[in-house]
Every structure is written in C-alpha cells, then in structure tokens.
Amino acid sequence: MQISMTINGTDVTREIEPRVLLVHFIRDDLRLTGTHWGCDTTNCGTCVVLMDGQPVKSCTVLAAMADGHTITTVEGLANGATLDPVQQGFMEEHGLQCGFCTPGMMLTARALLDHNPHPEPLEIREAISGQICRCTGYATIVRSIQWAAEHPAGAAAQTTEKEVHA
C-alpha cells in the first residue's frame, strides 16, 4: 500500500507492506536511525516520536496508521545548526550516557514543555514514566528538562520553523 506523511517537515510517500511498524518505516525506509527500539511490548519508550505533536511509541503504531499525519523524530528537533533547548539541556546536565533512550526522552520533553513550559520535577518524572533509561538514574534527565524550561531562548525561531512545516 502507499502511504504519505510529513516527517521533520518533509513530505514523504512510500510503498509499504501494511504490517510495517512505524519505527521500522522511520529507521529502515527513511534511514532516520535516531529513533531506536528496545522492547516489543510498548514498555521502554526508546522508539518515541511525536505524531501530530504528541509522543507515541512508534513500535506500536503501524506506518499505515501514520498515513496523513505529521511525525517529528530526533533528527527534526534542531533548527539547522541551532539545537533545541532540550538538546542543549541534555548536554549541559549530563542527561544522557549511552544515548539510546535519549531521542525518545528528548521528544517527550519537547512535547511536555510545549504543553507546560514550567513543569515541576514530579510532572517531568510522570511525563517520562513510560520510558526506561538504564544509565542515568533519571535525576540528570529531570535537570536537563528543567534546564530547557529555564532557557527557552531560541524557542521563537523554533516556532517559526514549525509553522513553516505545518
């Protein structure tokens, strides 16, 4: 079957098997390998992408179900050379070690901050509670997201970018 969607601002159209999982479509068909997978049971959240601005676990969404929708992956977070404050925050506060869960964590953080620009630490912990990090112990991830909340600079440019893509 043929599907079309907007990924990181670019329209794509591909022929796929109906059973192709969104995570495989993104990784294998589009070669955007920043989106990972770590389980098969929707528990780990390394496959999180934004679908119409909301975090979803792309291992449990069919590519066919994303037909006609807008997807943002980690590769779409930065605006050219300018990192999203969330990306900057993860570097500042050591929110990552092996980097495997990081794309999913950052996308959830971006959606959270879009919805709630000044989250409390507990709200951050709840927002990422469907995602597992085996390295950091989460405290530095919470700090990273707080850093991004405290440094929204560049957010204006980013909004413009999003509008262009919408």
Binding site: T33, H36, H94, L96, G99, F100
Partner: peptide, 16 residues
Amino acid sequence: RKEDPRFVRGKGHYID
C-alpha cells in the same frame, strides 16, 4: 561530553 553532540542529534551509530 565530547560524544554528546552526535547523540542529541540522533546521530549515534548503533549496531542496528
């Protein structure tokens, strides 16, 4: 960390 710029951009290079 010197490795972070590639990881936060989704440009790590894992086995899969």
